[in-house]
Protein backbone atom coordinates (compact mmCIF):
# COMPACT_ATOMS: atom_id res chain seq x y z
CA UNK A 1 0.00 0.00 0.00
CA UNK A 2 1.23 3.47 -0.75
CA UNK A 3 1.83 5.84 2.11
CA UNK A 4 -1.27 7.67 3.23
CA UNK A 5 -1.43 11.26 2.26
CA UNK A 6 -4.91 11.75 3.61
CA UNK A 7 -5.93 11.78 7.25
CA UNK A 8 -4.59 8.68 8.97
CA UNK A 9 -7.11 5.94 9.27
CA UNK A 10 -8.85 6.59 5.96
CA UNK A 11 -9.83 3.28 4.48
CA UNK A 12 -8.27 2.70 1.06
CA UNK A 13 -8.83 0.35 -1.85
CA UNK A 14 -8.07 0.47 -5.59
CA UNK A 15 -11.06 1.43 -7.74
CA UNK A 16 -10.40 -1.66 -9.91
CA UNK A 17 -11.41 -3.85 -6.95
CA UNK A 18 -14.84 -2.30 -6.99
CA UNK A 19 -15.10 -2.94 -10.72
CA UNK A 20 -14.24 -6.62 -10.21
CA UNK A 21 -16.98 -7.05 -7.61
CA UNK A 22 -19.47 -5.03 -9.63
CA UNK A 23 -18.94 -7.04 -12.80
CA UNK A 24 -19.38 -10.34 -10.99
CA UNK A 25 -22.63 -9.01 -9.53
CA UNK A 26 -23.75 -7.73 -12.95
CA UNK A 27 -23.06 -11.20 -14.33
CA UNK A 28 -25.27 -12.74 -11.66
CA UNK A 29 -28.07 -10.31 -12.44
CA UNK A 30 -27.97 -10.60 -16.24
CA UNK A 31 -26.92 -13.68 -18.23
CA UNK A 32 -26.13 -11.49 -21.24
CA UNK A 33 -23.25 -9.79 -19.43
CA UNK A 34 -20.02 -11.27 -20.85
CA UNK A 35 -16.35 -10.31 -20.62
CA UNK A 36 -13.10 -10.36 -22.54
CA UNK A 37 -9.59 -9.39 -21.56
CA UNK A 38 -6.22 -8.81 -23.20
CA UNK A 39 -3.96 -10.90 -20.94
CA UNK A 40 -4.53 -8.77 -17.83
CA UNK A 41 -7.30 -10.62 -16.04
CA UNK A 42 -5.94 -10.32 -12.51
CA UNK A 43 -4.67 -6.78 -12.63
CA UNK A 44 -7.87 -5.47 -14.21
CA UNK A 45 -9.84 -7.59 -11.68
CA UNK A 46 -11.97 -9.09 -14.43
CA UNK A 47 -10.70 -12.40 -13.01
CA UNK A 48 -13.61 -12.46 -10.53
CA UNK A 49 -16.05 -12.63 -13.42
CA UNK A 50 -13.92 -15.17 -15.28
CA UNK A 51 -13.89 -17.51 -12.27
CA UNK A 52 -17.63 -17.16 -11.72
CA UNK A 53 -18.63 -17.46 -15.41
CA UNK A 54 -15.85 -19.19 -17.37
CA UNK A 55 -18.20 -19.90 -20.29
CA UNK A 56 -18.95 -16.21 -20.67
CA UNK A 57 -15.34 -15.05 -20.68
CA UNK A 58 -12.97 -14.78 -23.66
CA UNK A 59 -9.19 -14.51 -23.34
CA UNK A 60 -8.09 -12.40 -26.31
CA UNK A 61 -4.34 -12.33 -25.64
CA UNK A 62 -2.25 -9.18 -25.98
CA UNK A 63 -4.30 -7.78 -28.85
CA UNK A 64 -6.23 -4.67 -27.94
CA UNK A 65 -7.49 -3.92 -31.44
CA UNK A 66 -9.06 -7.36 -31.48
CA UNK A 67 -10.33 -6.91 -27.91
CA UNK A 68 -12.71 -4.09 -28.73
CA UNK A 69 -13.73 -5.33 -32.19
CA UNK A 70 -14.57 -8.75 -30.76
CA UNK A 71 -16.55 -6.75 -28.21
CA UNK A 72 -18.47 -5.09 -31.05
CA UNK A 73 -19.29 -8.55 -32.44
CA UNK A 74 -20.43 -9.86 -29.06
CA UNK A 75 -22.67 -6.80 -28.66
CA UNK A 76 -24.10 -7.35 -32.15
CA UNK A 77 -25.50 -10.65 -30.90
CA UNK A 78 -27.21 -9.03 -27.90
CA UNK A 79 -24.43 -9.47 -25.35
CA UNK A 80 -23.30 -6.76 -22.94
CA UNK A 81 -19.53 -7.13 -23.24
CA UNK A 82 -17.09 -5.68 -20.71
CA UNK A 83 -13.60 -5.62 -22.25
CA UNK A 84 -10.63 -4.78 -20.07
CA UNK A 85 -6.99 -3.93 -20.45
CA UNK A 86 -4.76 -1.10 -19.29
CA UNK A 87 -6.09 2.27 -20.39
CA UNK A 88 -2.81 3.04 -22.17
CA UNK A 89 -3.62 0.22 -24.62
CA UNK A 90 -7.41 0.25 -24.53
CA UNK A 91 -8.59 2.89 -25.38
CA UNK A 92 -5.05 4.15 -26.04
CA UNK A 93 -4.05 1.84 -28.90
CA UNK A 94 -7.43 0.97 -30.41
CA UNK A 95 -9.16 4.34 -30.63
CA UNK A 96 -10.16 4.01 -34.29
CA UNK A 97 -11.70 0.58 -33.78
CA UNK A 98 -13.69 2.03 -30.88
CA UNK A 99 -14.77 4.98 -33.02
CA UNK A 100 -15.92 2.94 -36.02
CA UNK A 101 -17.11 -0.42 -34.75
CA UNK A 102 -18.51 0.70 -31.38
CA UNK A 103 -19.47 4.40 -31.44
CA UNK A 104 -20.47 4.95 -35.08
CA UNK A 105 -21.83 1.40 -35.18
CA UNK A 106 -23.70 2.06 -31.89
CA UNK A 107 -22.79 -1.16 -30.08
CA UNK A 108 -22.98 -1.08 -26.27
CA UNK A 109 -19.45 -2.27 -25.55
CA UNK A 110 -18.12 -1.43 -22.08
CA UNK A 111 -14.46 -0.44 -22.31
CA UNK A 112 -12.66 -0.76 -19.01
CA UNK A 113 -9.31 1.03 -18.83
CA UNK A 114 -7.33 0.05 -15.76
CA UNK A 115 -4.09 1.57 -14.50
CA UNK A 116 -5.03 5.01 -15.76
CA UNK A 117 -3.58 8.19 -14.30
CA UNK A 118 -0.86 8.93 -11.76
CA UNK A 119 -1.94 6.16 -9.37
CA UNK A 120 -0.08 3.87 -11.79
CA UNK A 121 3.03 5.23 -10.06
CA UNK A 122 6.22 3.15 -10.53
CA UNK A 123 5.21 1.81 -13.96
CA UNK A 124 6.18 5.18 -15.41
CA UNK A 125 5.01 7.47 -18.18
CA UNK A 126 4.20 4.78 -20.76
CA UNK A 127 1.57 3.22 -18.54
CA UNK A 128 0.31 6.31 -16.69
CA UNK A 129 -2.11 7.23 -19.44
CA UNK A 130 -3.41 10.77 -18.86
CA UNK A 131 -5.10 11.30 -22.22
CA UNK A 132 -7.84 8.66 -22.05
CA UNK A 133 -10.58 11.00 -20.80
CA UNK A 134 -10.00 13.39 -23.69
CA UNK A 135 -9.78 10.53 -26.21
CA UNK A 136 -13.10 9.03 -25.15
CA UNK A 137 -14.92 12.28 -24.45
CA UNK A 138 -14.59 13.45 -28.05
CA UNK A 139 -16.39 10.38 -29.46
CA UNK A 140 -20.12 10.73 -30.23
CA UNK A 141 -22.29 8.19 -28.34
CA UNK A 142 -19.58 7.44 -25.76
CA UNK A 143 -20.27 7.73 -22.02
CA UNK A 144 -17.19 8.47 -19.88
CA UNK A 145 -17.15 7.43 -16.22
CA UNK A 146 -14.38 8.13 -13.71
CA UNK A 147 -15.37 6.74 -10.32
CA UNK A 148 -14.18 8.43 -7.15
CA UNK A 149 -13.56 5.29 -5.13
CA UNK A 150 -13.96 1.52 -5.21
CA UNK A 151 -17.52 1.60 -3.90
CA UNK A 152 -18.57 4.02 -6.61
CA UNK A 153 -16.70 1.93 -9.21
CA UNK A 154 -18.83 -1.04 -8.18
CA UNK A 155 -22.04 0.97 -8.59
CA UNK A 156 -20.84 2.42 -11.88
CA UNK A 157 -20.16 -1.07 -13.24
CA UNK A 158 -23.70 -2.18 -12.40
CA UNK A 159 -25.09 0.98 -13.99
CA UNK A 160 -23.01 0.39 -17.13
CA UNK A 161 -24.42 -3.12 -17.50
CA UNK A 162 -27.89 -1.56 -17.62
CA UNK A 163 -26.94 1.32 -19.94
CA UNK A 164 -27.64 0.83 -23.66
CA UNK A 165 -24.76 3.04 -24.86
CA UNK A 166 -21.02 2.46 -25.34
CA UNK A 167 -19.27 3.27 -22.08
CA UNK A 168 -15.72 3.93 -20.91
CA UNK A 169 -14.76 3.24 -17.29
CA UNK A 170 -11.48 4.66 -15.99
CA UNK A 171 -9.81 2.76 -13.17
CA UNK A 172 -6.72 3.29 -11.02
CA UNK A 173 -4.06 0.81 -9.97
CA UNK A 174 -3.09 1.75 -6.41
CA UNK A 175 -5.36 2.04 -3.39
CA UNK A 176 -7.17 5.34 -3.06
CA UNK A 177 -9.36 6.69 -0.28
CA UNK A 178 -12.87 5.36 0.15
CA UNK A 179 -15.17 8.37 0.34
CA UNK A 180 -18.61 6.99 -0.28
CA UNK A 181 -20.80 4.37 1.34
CA UNK A 182 -23.23 1.82 -0.02
CA UNK A 183 -25.97 4.45 0.41
CA UNK A 184 -24.27 7.26 -1.55
CA UNK A 185 -26.30 7.83 -4.72
CA UNK A 186 -24.78 7.10 -8.13
CA UNK A 187 -26.40 7.59 -11.48
CA UNK A 188 -24.69 7.87 -14.87
CA UNK A 189 -24.73 11.53 -15.94
CA UNK A 190 -25.12 12.99 -12.44
CA UNK A 191 -22.68 15.12 -10.46
CA UNK A 192 -22.98 15.31 -6.67
CA UNK A 193 -22.31 18.07 -4.17
CA UNK A 194 -20.23 16.28 -1.54
CA UNK A 195 -19.69 19.39 0.54
CA UNK A 196 -21.59 22.66 0.45
CA UNK A 197 -19.84 26.01 0.57
CA UNK A 198 -20.38 29.55 -0.71
CA UNK A 199 -16.89 30.85 -1.53
CA UNK A 200 -15.42 28.57 -4.21
CA UNK A 201 -16.45 25.49 -6.18
CA UNK A 202 -13.94 22.66 -6.33
CA UNK A 203 -15.08 20.42 -9.15
CA UNK A 204 -13.30 17.10 -8.96
CA UNK A 205 -13.36 13.72 -10.63
CA UNK A 206 -12.04 10.28 -9.78
CA UNK A 207 -9.55 9.91 -6.98
CA UNK A 208 -9.00 13.66 -6.80
CA UNK A 209 -12.34 14.17 -5.08
CA UNK A 210 -10.72 12.77 -1.94
CA UNK A 211 -8.01 15.43 -2.20
CA UNK A 212 -10.69 18.07 -2.64
CA UNK A 213 -12.47 16.89 0.51
CA UNK A 214 -9.20 17.17 2.46
CA UNK A 215 -8.64 20.64 1.05
CA UNK A 216 -12.05 21.69 2.37
CA UNK A 217 -10.75 21.18 5.91
CA UNK A 218 -7.60 23.21 5.24
CA UNK A 219 -9.58 26.02 3.65
CA UNK A 220 -12.08 26.08 6.52
CA UNK A 221 -9.19 27.00 8.81
CA UNK A 222 -8.55 29.97 6.54
CA UNK A 223 -12.19 31.00 6.77
CA UNK A 224 -13.03 29.85 3.24
CA UNK A 225 -16.13 27.75 2.72
CA UNK A 226 -15.40 25.54 -0.27
CA UNK A 227 -18.01 23.57 -2.14
CA UNK A 228 -16.99 20.20 -3.57
CA UNK A 229 -18.79 18.92 -6.67
CA UNK A 230 -17.90 15.33 -7.44
CA UNK A 231 -18.20 14.52 -11.15
CA UNK A 232 -18.02 10.74 -11.75
CA UNK A 233 -19.51 11.08 -15.23
CA UNK A 234 -17.43 13.31 -17.49
CA UNK A 235 -19.79 12.69 -20.41
CA UNK A 236 -22.64 13.38 -20.49
CA UNK A 237 -21.68 16.18 -18.11
CA UNK A 238 -24.16 17.27 -15.44
CA UNK A 239 -24.10 20.90 -16.53
CA UNK A 240 -27.03 21.89 -14.26
CA UNK A 241 -25.21 20.93 -11.08
CA UNK A 242 -21.95 22.49 -12.25
CA UNK A 243 -23.57 25.77 -13.35
CA UNK A 244 -25.60 26.01 -10.16
CA UNK A 245 -22.48 25.73 -8.04
CA UNK A 246 -20.48 28.12 -10.25
CA UNK A 247 -23.24 30.73 -10.10
CA UNK A 248 -23.41 30.39 -6.34
CA UNK A 249 -19.68 30.74 -5.61
CA UNK A 250 -18.42 32.71 -8.61
CA UNK A 251 -15.06 30.89 -8.63
CA UNK A 252 -14.33 27.42 -9.97
CA UNK A 253 -11.35 25.13 -9.55
CA UNK A 254 -11.24 21.76 -11.32
CA UNK A 255 -8.97 18.87 -10.39
CA UNK A 256 -8.21 15.54 -12.02
CA UNK A 257 -5.22 13.20 -12.38
CA UNK A 258 -5.33 13.52 -16.15
CA UNK A 259 -4.47 16.02 -18.88
CA UNK A 260 -6.39 19.21 -18.23
CA UNK A 261 -6.55 19.64 -22.02
CA UNK A 262 -9.69 17.83 -23.01
CA UNK A 263 -10.25 16.39 -19.55
CA UNK A 264 -12.64 17.48 -16.80
CA UNK A 265 -10.98 20.91 -16.75
CA UNK A 266 -11.59 21.34 -20.46
CA UNK A 267 -15.15 20.08 -20.20
CA UNK A 268 -16.06 22.43 -17.33
CA UNK A 269 -14.36 25.38 -19.03
CA UNK A 270 -16.45 24.81 -22.15
CA UNK A 271 -19.69 24.76 -20.18
CA UNK A 272 -18.82 27.83 -18.09
CA UNK A 273 -17.56 29.88 -21.03
CA UNK A 274 -20.80 29.36 -22.92
CA UNK A 275 -23.25 29.68 -20.03
CA UNK A 276 -21.76 31.46 -17.05
CA UNK A 277 -18.24 32.80 -17.59
CA UNK A 278 -16.55 32.27 -14.24
CA UNK A 279 -13.00 32.79 -13.11
CA UNK A 280 -11.43 29.34 -12.93
CA UNK A 281 -8.30 27.29 -12.39
CA UNK A 282 -7.73 23.88 -13.92
CA UNK A 283 -5.60 21.56 -11.80
CA UNK A 284 -4.28 18.33 -13.26
CA UNK A 285 -1.43 17.40 -15.51
CA UNK A 286 -0.66 20.33 -17.75
CA UNK A 287 0.56 19.06 -21.13
CA UNK A 288 3.26 16.77 -19.72
CA UNK A 289 3.93 13.05 -19.40
CA UNK A 290 4.26 11.25 -16.10
CA UNK A 291 7.27 9.31 -14.77
CA UNK A 292 8.10 6.60 -12.25
CA UNK A 293 7.52 7.37 -8.60
CA UNK A 294 5.00 6.80 -5.87
CA UNK A 295 1.59 8.29 -6.55
CA UNK A 296 2.26 10.72 -3.72
CA UNK A 297 5.54 11.90 -5.28
CA UNK A 298 3.75 12.39 -8.58
CA UNK A 299 0.88 14.29 -6.97
CA UNK A 300 3.46 16.50 -5.24
CA UNK A 301 5.30 17.14 -8.50
CA UNK A 302 2.14 18.05 -10.41
CA UNK A 303 0.72 20.08 -7.52
CA UNK A 304 -2.32 17.92 -6.86
CA UNK A 305 -2.13 17.54 -3.06
CA UNK A 306 -4.76 19.05 -0.73
CA UNK A 307 -2.26 21.75 0.27
CA UNK A 308 -1.83 22.62 -3.40
CA UNK A 309 -5.57 22.99 -3.79
CA UNK A 310 -5.55 25.34 -0.81
CA UNK A 311 -2.85 27.51 -2.43
CA UNK A 312 -4.62 27.55 -5.77
CA UNK A 313 -7.93 28.51 -4.17
CA UNK A 314 -6.25 31.45 -2.45
CA UNK A 315 -4.63 32.49 -5.73
CA UNK A 316 -7.96 32.18 -7.55
CA UNK A 317 -9.81 34.27 -4.97
CA UNK A 318 -7.05 36.90 -5.00
CA UNK A 319 -7.27 37.09 -8.75
CA UNK A 320 -11.02 37.53 -8.57
CA UNK A 321 -10.76 40.34 -5.99
CA UNK A 322 -8.33 42.21 -8.25
CA UNK A 323 -10.55 42.08 -11.31
Amino acid sequence: MNSLHLADGTEMEPTRKGFGRGLKRAGELNANVVAACADLTDSTQISLFKEAFPGRFVEIGIAEQNLVTVGAGLAAMGKIPFVSSYAAFSPGRNWEQIRTTICLNDRPVKIVGAHAGLYTGPDGATHQVLEDIALMRVLPNMVVIVPGDSIEAEKATLAMAADPRPNYLRLARDPSAILTTADTPFEIGKAYVFHEGADVSIIATGTMTAHAMEAVKLLAKDGIQAEVVHVPTIKPLDTDTILKSARKTGAVLTIEEAQIIGGLGGAVAEVLAENAPTIMKRMGVDDQFGESGTPQQLFEKHGLMPKDIRLQVHALLDKRSHR
Binding site: N66, L74, A76, P81, T101
Partner: peptide, 10 residues
Protein backbone atom coordinates in the same frame (compact mmCIF):
# COMPACT_ATOMS: atom_id res chain seq x y z
CA UNK B 1 -12.79 -9.65 -35.27
CA UNK B 2 -16.48 -8.79 -35.23
CA UNK B 3 -17.21 -12.18 -36.77
CA UNK B 4 -15.22 -13.75 -33.92
CA UNK B 5 -17.31 -11.87 -31.37
CA UNK B 6 -20.53 -12.93 -33.09
CA UNK B 7 -19.42 -16.54 -33.31
CA UNK B 8 -18.37 -16.60 -29.66
CA UNK B 9 -21.73 -15.11 -28.63
CA UNK B 10 -23.53 -17.81 -30.64
Amino acid sequence: SQACGMSLAM
